[in-house]
C-alpha cells in the first residue's frame, strides 16, 4: 500500500509536460473555445451579452440532442451518417400523424398526440435497428451502412410529405421545441438533460464502460467475453433515437416539417463531437468533450454573425476551423501514445 502512495505521488511529480501532452485532447478544444469567445467579445459589443448566450444555447440545442447518441457511436470507433436523415424522417413522421390545417395538402393520418409520438420514436428506433443489424449481423462497415440509411430515411421522408410542408406537431412537442419556462427555452432544457443523461450512462454504468472498452480495443473486448456486437448494435439504436428526438423538437422549433430540413445537422453534429476532442479512433473522449465542441461550434456560428465579414468567407472560416480541430484530434492521439511510451 505504501509503495502505491509513493508511486502515486511520483506520478504527480512526473511533471507538467507529459501530463499536458496526454490531456491535449481535452485542453485544446477548451482553449479554442476561450480564444474564440474572447475574440468575438472584443470584435463585437453585441456578442458577450446574456441575451446572446441564450441565443447560442438555443442554436446548439438540436445539434446537442443529436450529438449525444453520436458520441456513443464515435466512442466505439464507428460512425453514423444517417443522423440527419433519421432526424428529418422522425420529425416528418410525427407531423404526418398529427392533424394538419386544411390547406396542407398531405394525405396524412391524424392520430392522438401520444400515439403519434410513440410511432415516430418507434420509426427512428427501427431505422437504428436496421443500422445495427447491417453493421453487426451482415458486417457492413458503419460508414457505408449509414450512408445507405441516410438515403433510405430521405426516401421515406419524401414519400410522407411528397414535396409539401406540414406545420403542426403534437402539443407537447410544440411546447418542448418552441416554448420556454421561466425565460429558459424548453429545448435547451431537454438538450441539457439528454447530455447529462448521456454523460451519466457513459461514466457510471457498466454499459458505458463497455462502450469505452470496445472503442479502446475491440479485439480485447471480444477476448474478455463481451458481446461486442450487442454493444455496437445498442449504440446505433441510441444514436438513431437521439436523432429522432432532435428531429421532432427541431420540427417544432423551426415551425415546419419538410424534406432536407436537417441536412446541415449531419456535419454540425459530427463536428461537435470531433472538435470537442472525442477520438475518431474510439475509446477516448465523452459527453464533456461534446459539450465543449457544441460551444465551440455555437460560438463560431453565432460570433461570425456579429462581426462584419463576407458571408461567403464565413463558410470557409468554419471549414478551416474544423480542419484545425481534426488535425488536433489526430495529433492528440499520437501525443498520448508518446506520453504513455
Amino acid at each position: 500500500m505504501s509503495s502505491e502512495t509513493a508511486f502515486a505521488t511520483g506520478q504527480r511529480a512526473r511533471g507538467l509536460g507529459p501530463f499536458l501532452r496526454s490531456q491535449m485532447r481535452n485542453i485544446a478544444p477548451f482553449l479554442t473555445l476561450i480564444f474564440l469567445s474572447a475574440f468575438f467579445a472584443l470584435a463585437s459589443p453585441s456578442f458577450a451579452t446574456l441575451d446572446n448566450l441564450g441565443n447560442i444555447l438555443t442554436q446548439v440545442s438540436v445539434t446537442g440532442i443529436i450529438a449525444v447518441g453520436l458520441t456513443f457511436v464515435i466512442l466505439c470507433a464507428e460512425i453514423d451518417l444517417s443522423i440527419a436523415g433519421i432526424a428529418n424522417v422522425t420529425g416528418i413522421a410525427v407531423a404526418f400523424f398529427t392533424a394538419q390545417e386544411s390547406y396542407v395538402n398531405i394525405a396524412n393520418l391524424p392520430l392522438p398526440g401520444a400515439v403519434a409520438i410513440l410511432l415516430a420514436i418507434a420509426l427512428c428506433a427501427a431505422l437504428g435497428l436496421v443500422n445495427a443489424l447491417g453493421l453487426t449481423v451482415i458486417g457492413i462497415p458503419s460508414f457505408i451502412m449509414t450512408l445507405a440509411m441516410m438515403q433510405i430515411a430521405a426516401g421515406i421522408s419524401a414519400m410522407l410529405v411528397r414535396g409539401q410542408i406540414a406545420y403542426k406537431v403534437p402539443d407537447v412537442i410544440t411546447t418542448l421545441g418552441s416554448g420556454s419556462v421561466g425565460g429558459i427555452p424548453w429545448i435547451v432544457i431537454v438538450a441539457a438533460i439528454m447530455l447529462l443523461g448521456g454523460h451519466l450512462v457513459l461514466t457510471y454504468t457498466r454499459f458505458g464502460r463497455y462502450v469505452y472498452m470496445v472503442g479502446g480495443n475491440r479485439e480485447a473486448a471480444e477476448y474478455a467475453g463481451l458481446n461486442v456486437k450487442l454493444i455496437l448494435g445498442a449504440v446505433m439504436v441510441i444514436s438513431a433515437v437521439c436523432s429522432g428526438i432532435g428531429g421532432m423538437l427541431g420540427v417544432a422549433h423551426f415551425g415546419s416539417a419538410q424534406q432536407n430540413e436537417f441536412d446541415t445537422y449531419l456535419l454540425d453534429s459530427i463536428a461537435a463531437v470531433v472538435v470537442g476532442g472525442t477520438s475518431l479512433f474510439g475509446g477516448r473522449g465523452g459527453i464533456g468533450n461534446t459539450i465543449v465542441g457544441l460551444f465551440v461550434l455555437g460560438v463560431l456560428n453565432n460570433g461570425l454573425d456579429h462581426v462584419n465579414i463576407d458571408s461567403f468567407l464565413k463558410i470557409l472560416i468554419r471549414g478551416l476551423i474544423l480542419l484545425a480541430a481534426l488535425i488536433i484530434n489526430v495529433y492528440a492521439q499520437r501525443l498520448r501514445e508518446k506520453a504513455a511510451e
Binding site: 457498466r206 464502460r209 469505452y212 480485447a220
Partner: peptide, 26 residues
C-alpha cells in the same frame, strides 16, 4: 489482442467480471 493498453490495470482486470460486480452502476 487481449489487453487495453490505454486503460488502467484495474479496468483490465475487472472487464470480464463487471457483470458480477455490478448490475447497472459501476
Amino acid at each position: 489482442a487481449m489487453l487495453f493498453h490505454q486503460e488502467p490495470v484495474y479496468k483490465n482486470i475487472s472487464i470480464s467480471i463487471l457483470d458480477r460486480i455490478s448490475a447497472l452502476l459501476l
